[in-house]
């Protein structure tokens, strides 16, 4: 474990906790993409299968359970909670997210490190996570006023993979870890998708004005 990875995991954990708090306290999921949340459930289920087959550490196991539980909980709130589901921007969250699942799976079948079920699913989860934020970013452009909690949620979610990039650089040079092209390229693509959001988020924070993405 290194500081970059710990900071990344904490940023990721904080993002999902912030989102859950927003939904629970405001009883609203306005501005949140259900499609992105559902893609994240698939990402975590596909990636954390080794939860049952390999024990790394208490931390590793707990964090996997927390990410699976919170992502499922958020989807439940947005789909079934009688009050929250009324606030879902169904008409704006129109990205056909199921379209990105087959290509990511196909790519995982073609480009992977080892052709086993676990490895292909793990690779699939990396490719899918790289594009999972797309529905949310598109919804943001259509949302007139983005509330602070949503903005902070997306910032932390983007920051987590950016910190993982630093973690991979650190491990490559300090721990002489082997090249991990699949993780690196997926992580780069994922972080690059947040580029313009980061720009507008930092600008709004500097000028102390409301976060607004150009349509």
């Amino acid at each position: 474990m290194n500081i970059f990875r710990l900071a990344g995991d904490m940023s990721h954990l904080l993002s999902v906790i912030l989102l859950l708090l927003k939904i629970r306290t405001t009883k609203s999921c306005a501005g949140i993409s259900l499609k992105t949340q559902e893609l994240y459930v698939v990402v975590f289920l596909a990636r954390y299968l080794n939860l049952f087959t390999r024990y790394y550490s208490f931390y590793n196991t707990v964090m996997k359970l927390v990410f699976i539980a919170t992502s499922v909980c958020i989807v439940w709130y947005m789909r079934f909670h009688k009050v929250v589901k009324q606030t879902y921007n169904k008409d704006l969250d129109t990205f056909r997210h199921y379209v990105v699942i087959p290509p990511c799976f196909l790519l995982a079948l073609l480009v992977h490190h080892e052709f086993t079920v676990m490895e292909v699913l793990w690779t699939f989860s990396l490719y899918l996570e790289a594009v999972a934020i797309l529905p949310q970013l598109i919804l943001l452009q259509r949302t007139r006023n983005i509330d602070n909690l949503t903005g902070n949620y997306i910032f932390l979610l983007g920051a987590y993979r950016a910190l993982y990039l630093l973690n991979w650089i650190y491990r490559f040079f300090m721990e002489k870890a082997q090249a991990r092209w699949i993780s690196w390229i997926s992580g780069l693509v994922q972080t690059a998708l947040y580029a313009d959001f980061f720009y507008y988020y930092i600008k709004s924070w500097k000028n102390n004005e409301k976060l607004k993405l150009p349509a």
Binding site: N50, R54, Y56, K64, H113, E114, R171, Q178, R180
Partner: peptide
């Protein structure tokens, strides 16, 4: 060989 190293990550 599978990336055992990276599997300890989340």
């Amino acid at each position: 060989t599978p990336e055992e190293g990276v599997k300890d990550e989340l």
